[in-house]
Design a protein around this nucleic acid. Structure first.
Lengths: 199, 199
DNA sequence: GATAAAAACTAATAATTGTTAGTTTTGACA
DNA sequence: TGTCAAAACTAACAATTATTAGTTTTTATC
């Protein structure tokens, strides 16, 4: 009976993707059924197939849209002419902001991507690897320039990204922490872990 | 035909739990079927029910065993007479060691607990909250004593735990990083984020 | 070798899964 | 108002799910 009402700037497909995002985040991709997504919208499950091609396809769209945003930001930073620490601080702040503003979407790209079917799984993993390598290269350059302590670059990258990617799991539950306070505190902690003494 | 062969110091139930742990980690709890667990052991699915009472029960056992270990360690540290920073450093190292040595088990307790059925879900969440609160209290005491920078205690706790809990996702894939190097680098980064300048 | 318990099996359950086929309803424009 | 496509519907599918019941095999102990 009901129809999928497209919102202001979003197609019917976008409405489905958004409802699915919420459910995937709450229950996980495999534990979310098409019927649940349909019910959340107020429609029967088969109706969804007028707009999307499969459940896997929804996941694919979410994951690659997020990947594109992060990749785009990284590329922009790489091209800037600035100190390495300033670049890394901006990247950290970008990650935190994304996590706070779009945590459902980001969460899925970060936790549910392993349920992607091939060949998308391989593609996604490759992008992920590439992203982290380029971040590590940035840190290595920072060490060479004497801006950053002599850390193991890959360990530093993983530590920073893991710390940030964990945000959603606690920012959502219980009493929320003020986003600005969160961003400043966390950024400072992570930058202090990198910075050379006496700077 | 085949039988579940109990290993040296483990019952048949332990064998099932261990195989299930590996699969839950690899595919996630909802996406792992009892038939898969049975096949990994070399047995038919219904045979498992001679040793366990349900699929949920396996998850419950894993989650609460891990919770117990962490709770026990925290309690021991709380009772020690030592500087706060030393305590926190030992707790951080304990977490990293657990993550490296028993990452499959720890991963499940950290990522799949939301699939616990009630009332276990509520119990687990409560323990989790309590653990983090007590860690935050420790950090607050460190600030009062002048050992620790004036960070937001809860943000610090979440940052540290998230950083560590993310380890498995990258330590498993690609070329592994030497565990000792990892522990030292990561601990140092995190402690530097807490420590007051000039110490 | 007989006995009894432990642990495997086969067969079947009802429920749920993603998805397709075919049909009816809706809504915008002529 | 009639037309046509978009988008909803119902019915059904084969596959898979966790689990139970009932039966047979294995193993250890006498």
């Amino acid at each position: 009976m009901a129809k999928i009402i497209p919102s202001e700037n979003g197609s019917r497909k976008d409405v489905i993707t958004q409802k699915a995002t919420t459910l995937f985040r709450k229950k996980g991709f495999p534990a979310t059924s098409m019927r649940e997504i349909a019910e959340a919208i107020g429609v029967e499950a088969p109706s969804l197939y007028n707009h999307i091609s499969s459940k896997n396809d929804i996941l694919k769209d979410i994951c690659f849209r997020v990947a594109k945003q992060y990749m785009g930001n990284l590329r922009a930073e790489e091209l800037k002419n600035d100190s390495i620490l300033a670049k890394i601080e901006r990247i950290i702040r970008f990650h935190i902001t994304m996590m706070v503003d779009e945590y459902e979407t980001v969460y899925i790209a970060d936790h549910e991507w392993r349920h992607l079917p091939e060949p998308f799984l391989a593609d996604f993993k490759s992008q992920r690897r590439s992203y982290r390598s380029r971040l590590a290269a940035l840190i290595e350059e920072g060490i060479d320039r004497g801006e950053i302590r002599e850390v193991h670059p890959m360990i530093a990258v993983h530590t920073i990204l893991s710390a940030i990617n964990g945000i959603d799991s606690w920012q959502r539950s219980g009493k929320k922490i003020d986003p600005v306070l969160l961003e400043d505190n966390m950024t400072q902690m992570l930058i202090l872990g990198l910075q050379k003494k006496g700077r």
